[in-house]
Design a protein around this nucleic acid. Structure first.
Length: 836
DNA sequence: GTAGGGTTAG
């Protein structure tokens, strides 16, 4: 699109060419026109055509009053005429109209700006602002100044103040315009500009409204400047409001100054100012975030003592605190209590509790206890059912969730959209997106309208499964229902798109978000940056980082972690370290993820010294390594064949109470297998069992693979049988490994048995699997079984590709199996695969 | 003015 300003200038002609004659169309025979015309001038004078601008202004008023602004605007002559004016001329007209007919001035200003894309000069903006302020239309005033400030951007305060001071001093409502300017700057988080205007106001003896101060305080609550503003309020003798206090408390909590927050709160209390619910909620939230749920609970009691009724915020804040602290039982009690007090738990409550279950799911046996709590009273109600569904889904038991949904339905409960969303999310997480889509239709037929959450879950689910087309259809479906994604759902969708193999689709979506600009926060950037980091595109990741900085968005620790990851992935360790410094310069404290990423970078390069140095550095910065950090260190040591050292670290982990998981063990086991030390590999496997750690599918893949390669195939078969008897299912990879090994050794019978088993277990057997087997059989000239596998493949509806056919054809020719060769040839011709 | 959710490491 062409820049409106340029468009305007292209059409602009010098005013000299202006002549009033063509404007006669604006005069109407309607008697109204006469009075309208008279109303703009005090003395009823004959039309004066010698001052063209004044004349035009009058005509505009006449037109607006007789046929309405819209229709005036539609007159091509009017448009042409107006488009020939420059900003200064429009400014004169608007200023003239301000005295004669201020309403017309505002209408003209807006029409030109919105319908013709006219760029007004600063004076026009302020003239209109003053008109609105005088009429006390503060919402409109805010809107206009908001747009003005958006346009002027950061650092514009000095220029605007200068103008206000020189051109508008003494105008009616000048103070309100100043005041609103502070408010708008601070809302836009242009704090420096806001403070600048505030200082000028002080010099002019204009007193800002307390709401303006509150606005500014809110945007400064993360910093100490908050106190300067607060002192300013006090010095000016302005009474702080409830809001002021709540913001200050929130600010102190956000700065982790809990004692100061408490002191401030008690000071107000001493002054007999009874605390507001919001202040108490804020304090609860602050203490919960610090992990002090006990203190938070006492504030809850304090509320009751003051006769304040806890609201949904109070409950959700406390429930969240308890969930994060692992006190699920209490969290659930509060959720019940909430309902008893007539407050329905909402989306936020359930989301929070679901997160609690998820966190608790890591503790074995916890769910059983929770289930008992939930079922303590025999008849579950809507809340309990929803909570139960949350719990089952979070531990991956979607089936039980469905059972409960059905039960709810049979017992005549009014189904809630939340239960469905929980189930949908569970299905999508396990990749069962098509079942999820069916459930969507079911909920719709039950008269429930899917909401933003529903669509976000499904869209990101389909994206993650690589079915972008379905996701796009759902997206369109959603928008057609007037449901528009917010920053959170955009994030969900974008990260879903990032899971698909091409980055282009994700980038296109990202670019479209950036273009509308409203919803792009740092997380959206983080998602995109991380995608580039994962594919090793350091350049693009850094480019996006630069964009963040240019836009004045504060990068987070995640932003830096992803960039550091990108550098490590490309083996540019020096670069990664430089970014660690950049991060510190921004005042962002490196996290455990930062250090683990860097250590992994060193470990990949076999740089043990680098790893150790980083471990010390972590210690110095008081960042405690976790089991992932140690696993990375073990990986590094294993890579260099330092097996005894690896085992030592494993012991250290147990000593420090950091439990190694399957991945930790798999790394060591694999390393032993690589050195053909199968004995030690199996000893570690036993060690896992001893520590109550169930080996994962990957563990058995590694072990089976090792047995097939270096050990006895018999042992692999034996392990397979043992696992089968224990009900442990081997992965497809492990089965394929065994099949290939049996083929290579010539045990066709066993290979076929395993192959059939693979299909029976529901694994998706592909052309690649068949090709791998047939290839090995052909290599050993096992013609009959090779043919038999080919037939099995054709029977199952899989056609061979050219590569497979050519390979078989060559084998058949070599061993003189001409009839088989001809048979294959005819098959190839039928399939359109003609040999050279 | 107060609550969660979308993003990072083995």
């Amino acid at each position: 699109m062409l820049n409106p300003l340029r468009q305007w200038r292209a059409k602009a002609k010098p005013l000299l060419s202006f002549s009033p004659q063509p404007l006669n169309f604006l005069f109407f025979t309607n008697p109204l026109s006469v009075s309208a015309l008279e109303s703009i001038d005090d003395e009823v004078s004959p039309i004066d055509t010698s001052d063209p601008l004044r004349f035009l202004a009058r005509q505009i008023v006449t037109g607006f009053n007789t046929i309405g602004p819209r229709r005036v605007l539609c007159c091509p002559e009017f448009k042409t005429l107006v488009l020939s004016l420059n900003a200064k001329q429009v400014e004169d007209i608007i200023d003239f109209l301000r005295e004669k007919n201020p309403k017309c001035a505002v209408v003209l200003f807006n029409l030109l700006k919105n319908d013709l894309g006219f760029q007004h000069c600063r004076i026009s903006w302020f003239v209109v602002a003053h008109i609105l302020a005088k009429k006390r239309r503060f919402n409109k005033l805010r809107e206009v100044l908001q747009e003005f400030v958006d346009h002027e951007g950061s650092g514009s305060a000095p220029v605007l103040c200068e103008l206000l001071l020189k051109r508008f001093r003494g105008w009616d409502s000048n103070g309100q315009v100043w005041d609103m300017l502070v408010s708008v700057y601070s809302r836009n988080e242009l704090v420096q500009d806001a403070l600048f205007v505030l200082a000028k106001m002080k010099k002019l003896n204009f007193q800002p409204f307390i709401s303006t101060y509150n606005n500014l305080l809110y945007n400064l609550r993360h910093t100490d400047i908050m106190w300067d503003v607060y002192n300013d309020i006090m010095e000016n003798g302005i009474r702080p409001t409830e809001y002021t206090n709540a913001i200050l408390i929130d600010g102190l909590c956000k700065q982790y100054k809990m004692e100061d927050a408490l002191a401030y709160f008690s000071e107000k209390e001493r002054k007999d100012i009874s605390p507001s619910l919001v202040s108490l909620n804020t304090l609860m939230s602050g203490f919960c975030k610090m992990g002090f749920t006990g203190v938070a609970k006492s504030f809850f009691c304090l509320m009751l003592k003051y006769g304040l009724v806890p609201d949904t915020y109070s409950y959700n804040i406390l429930i969240n605190g308890l969930c994060v602290a692992g006190s699920m039982e209490e969290a659930l009690e509060f959720a019940y209590d909430m309902e008893k007090q007539g407050l329905e738990p909402d989306n936020i409550t359930y989301n929070t509790i679901a997160k609690g279950f998820r966190l608790l799911g890591l503790v074995s046996g916890a769910w059983k206890v929770m289930q008992k709590v939930l079922l303590r009273e025999l008849d579950p109600d809507l809340v309990k059912y929803t909570l139960l569904i949350c719990g089952h889904c979070q531990i991956g038991n979607t089936k039980e969730g469905f059972k409960l949904l059905k039960e709810m339905f049979l017992r005549g409960f009014q189904m809630s959209i939340i239960s469905y969303n929980v189930l949908l999310s569970s299905l999508c997480k396990s990749g069962r997106v098509h079942e999820a889509k069916k459930l969507l239709h079911e909920m719709e037929s039950n008269g429930l309208n899917p909401d933003l959450t529903t669509y976000s879950i499904l869209i990101s689910g389909f994206c993650r499964q690589g079915e972008v087309e379905v996701a796009i259809l759902l997206y369109k479906d959603m928008c057609s229902k007037q449901i528009f994604p917010n920053s959170f759902s955009h994030g969900a969708i974008l990260s879903g798109l990032c899971e698909t193999d091409t980055i282009n689709v994700a980038r296109m979506y990202f670019d479209s978000l950036v273009k509308i600009d409203l919803v792009v926060d740092v997380v959206i950037y983080n998602i995109m940056i991380d995608k580039y980091a994962k594919i090793g595109d350091v350049g693009e990741a850094v480019k996006l980082y630069m964009q963040i900085i240019e836009k004045g968005i504060m990068p987070t620790v995640v932003t830096f972690n992803s960039i550091i990851y990108a550098f490590c992935k490309m083996g540019k360790l020096a670069g990664a370290r430089r970014w660690l410094e950049v991060m510190k310069v921004h005042g962002i404290v490196p996290s455990i993820v930062t250090y683990t990423t860097l250590i992994n970078g060193c470990s990949e390069q076999g740089n043990t010294n680098g790893m150790l140095k980083l471990l010390w550095e972590m210690e110095a910065e008081a960042v405690e390594p976790n089991s992932i950090t140690y696993t990375v260190v073990i990986k590094g040591l294993c890579k260099q064949g330092k097996m005894p050292e690896s085992l030592e670290i494993l012991d250290d982990m147990y000593c420090k109470g950091l439990l190694p998981d399957q991945i930790t063990y798999n790394i060591i086991i694999q390393s032993f297998c690589r050195t053909r030390d199968i004995r030690n590999a199996f000893l570690l496997h036993d060690d896992m069992l001893m520590h109550n750690l169930q080996p994962s599918a990957a563990t058995y893949n590694i072990l089976i693979d090792a047995l097939c390669q270096y050990g006895e195939l018999k042992d692999a078969d034996w392990l397979h049988t043992v696992l089968q008897n224990q009900g442990v299912r081997l992965s497809k990879v492990a089965l394929t490994t065994m099949i290939k090994a049996h083929c290579a050794k010539g045990d066709v019978y066993k290979a076929k048995e395993l192959f059939q088993q693979m299909a029976e277990l529901g694994f998706n057997v592909t052309l690649k699997d068949y090709s791998a087997v047939i290839n090995r059989l052909c290599n050993r000239s096992f013609i009959v079984p090779a043919k038999s596998f080919l037939h099995m493949m054709l029977y199952n509806g899989i056609s061979p590709d050219e590569e497979l056919c050519t390979m078989m054809l060559d084998t058949f020719k070599q061993v003189g199996e001409f009839s088989s060769a001809f048979e294959l040839l005819s098959l190839m011709i039928k399939s359109g695969l003609l040999p050279d």
